[in-house]
Amino acid sequence: MRSLILQVMTRGLTPLLLLFSVYLLLRGHNSPGGGFAGGLIASSVLVLFALVFGVQETRKALRVSPLSLLVSGLAIAVLSGLVGWFEGGDFLQAWWYGREVEIIHHFGTPLLFDLGVYLTVLGAMLTMVLTLIEEA
């Protein structure tokens, strides 16, 4: 879409909205938000980017393929479940580390799992949408 206003707006908004998606990801295990919501926001930002600057530019900006994002997200989610075993509990049992901090509240395996969900949602959405835009 060759619209100057949209291009300038997108350039400015993309980093802000991506930051917001990460904010949602980090607080999600304790407050409204989470990996799924964060991943959806991140993917909608990148879809906007793709509509304005084209699919090729988006792929270049991403550096990794969306499918790899999906794979690594799934792997991280499974690994976060395995931690429970190695700590002596059950699969997917939550384990917390360190002391309380702002926004994140606590570091632990639920955050890791959320990160996996975030990447999986982002990867899946981008794989679908970018393919659809390319074929249209």
């Binding site: 429970g84 059950d90 997917l92």
Partner: peptide, 8 residues
Amino acid sequence: AIAVQLGG
């Protein structure tokens, strides 16, 4: 029979 409570 055996059971496990997922996530504890």
